[in-house]
Design a protein around this nucleic acid. Structure first.
Lengths: 125, 125
DNA sequence: ATCGATAGTGACCTAAAGGATACTTATATG
DNA sequence: CATATAAGTATCCTTTAGGTCACTATCGAT
């Protein structure tokens, strides 16, 4: 065993490793898009509205993405005991901060797109 | 066919999509670690020195990571016709910019690690 | 009695990323 | 002659992300 006090499945001891893990998740195919829809909503928003807002996502994958955002503290999930069910999601303060910190990076990358394109055109192997 | 002038395999038409693609690659398991070793070297550095510098990576995966960094313009690769072979990698201006833009995000995430940990501890499902 | 609405879950599949291990090449050294 | 070296490839395997499609529960409305 690697640790004196063993870790439960998926607990991460080191802050750097945890930060990398969280950012790695966020870098997935859908997380940022979902986060942006939550941000645009400026308040609680239902599951099916998010589903409409994120182009191309399926219900199953959206559920997974939302669970992960909830797990890491970027979104909240509120269930109303109604039939048919109502579940609302909202961005947290932490989620908003994440968006604000990711934004400059994506803006830079978009500004530099021409350079990426040129590099890829040059590249042969 | 989706485009009037069809795209070769893996060409991306839209700047936003290209930027996302590049950042998606960079967000992989190894790219940033490799980039940091190139940055610390402050100059050309041999394949095997990079291999030593990135903890846990294998030669095959390092080769893949370096090829991708080269392809997107973040690193250069110089082959010297010697036996045994010598190949040197170096960070480009674009690669340095990337590091400078990613850094604030990872610093923020590390500062917030406590919050991620707390959220994950709270989370049960 | 059946339908539609909402927010899912479950079983299954594919593609891509990552990883282990063995092999290659040419030369210099002992 | 055998061995070491550097920078990889080739082959095979496992894991993970993402995707399809079918299914569920409950209630009010038709």
């Amino acid at each position: 065993m690697a640790h004196a006090l063993s870790l439960a499945q998926n607990e991460i001891a080191d802050d750097d490793a945890l930060a990398r893990d969280v950012l790695g998740q966020v870098a997935g195919r859908w997380s940022l898009g979902v986060l942006c829809v939550l941000a645009e909503a400026k308040g609680p928003i239902r599951f099916s509205r998010v589903l409409d807002g994120v182009d191309g996502i399926t219900a199953k994958v959206l559920t997974q993405a939302l669970r992960q955002l909830e797990r890491d503290g970027f979104a909240t999930r509120t269930i109303y005991a109604q039939v048919p069910p109502r579940v609302e999601y909202a961005l947290t303060e932490l989620g908003l901060e994440l968006i604000e910190h990711v934004d400059p990076l994506t803006r830079w990358a978009t500004r530099r797109a021409k350079d990426f394109r040129a590099a890829r055109a040059r590249f042969v192997r």
